[in-house]
């Protein structure tokens, strides 16, 4: 059982304070959904957790199994077991998906490769591709090169499946995906929560992600703060009423 803790997190993007005191505690196998209107700080929160350059944590703490991650570079956070699925995955010409994952796995401790049953990367790639309907031909491509927006999102989930992190942050994984793809992707993530106890922080605008992905907690992020926390019913309510009731001055 692992635990991912965010405590009193303040983060800025450029000169602007965007995340203004966020607390979250996620345990292995749990799914936490962070919903919020545009500009509420969702993406900055996701990047602050992974340590993207240009996003800085100004106060607070991010811990994985008690180890402080604030101030450590992204690659060390990844090796500690954190994964970020980007809202806009980056194209890296000439760097093959398989080569990147081989490098990524080479640096991992044995613990995070648990349960791979000694499979080759190639087998794992094929298996994960089949699980989410990712065209096998794309496995031979350089990272995200000549992939559509939706294929890039599937590619993020494919990498998640191969790397098997302890916790993942999904930054609007459902945007750009059609209904079938959302179902395939959210179903895969849901299975991962039991397969290897993946803990999930899913940042999204929409309720639709939650048809397959069973949320334990739903948090409403407005103006950089979590203003409400509840069960899946909270997501349904937001779907009906919007964020109006939570906006500043409401």
């Amino acid at each position: 059982m692992s635990i991912f803790e965010v405590e009193g997190l303040h983060a800025s993007a450029g000169a602007r304070d965007v995340v203004k005191g966020v607390d979250l505690t996620v345990r292995s196998g749990e799914v936490h959904v962070v919903m919020g209107p545009n500009g509420s700080g969702k993406s900055t929160l996701a990047h602050a957790l992974m340590g993207r350059p240009g996003t800085s944590v100004t106060a607070g703490s991010i811990r994985l199994d008690g180890v402080e991650l604030t101030g450590t570079p992204s690659w060390k956070r990844a090796r500690a077991g954190l994964f970020l699925a980007l809202q806009q995955p980056i194209e890296v010409p000439g760097v093959l998906l398989e080569a990147a994952l081989t490098e990524a796995l080479a640096g991992r401790s044995g613990a995070s490769q648990e349960g791979d049953g000694g499979q080759s990367i190639d087998d794992r790639l094929k298996q994960e591709a089949a699980a989410i309907g990712f065209d096998e031909r794309f496995l031979r491509r350089p990272l995200n090169v000549d992939l559509s927006g939706g294929e890039r999102k599937r590619n993020e989930v494919l990498q998640l499946g191969v790397l098997r992190p302890k916790f993942c942050v999904l930054d609007e994984i459902d945007s750009g995906l059609d209904v079938d793809a959302v179902r395939a992707v959210s179903g895969r993530i849901e299975r991962a929560t039991s397969e290897w106890g993946l803990g999930v922080i899913a940042v999204t605008h929409f309720h639709r992600l939650l048809r397959e992905l069973r949320a334990d907690k739903v948090h409403v992020l407005v103006d950089g703060r979590i203003v409400a926390t509840g069960g899946p019913e909270l997501a349904e309510e937001l779907e009906r009423t919007g964020y109006g009731a939570y906006e500043p001055g409401a």
């Binding site: 993207r52 980056i90 000439g94 990498q159 790397l163």
Partner: peptide, 25 residues
């Protein structure tokens, strides 16, 4: 590009090597 590879657990110096190799490949 470097951040993307780093976010997968690849150290920056290796990420840069991969990117330059990829640039030519």
């Amino acid at each position: 590009q470097r951040y993307y590879l780093e976010s997968r657990g690849i150290p920056p110096s290796r990420a840069e090597q991969l990117i330059v190799l990829g640039f030519f490949d």
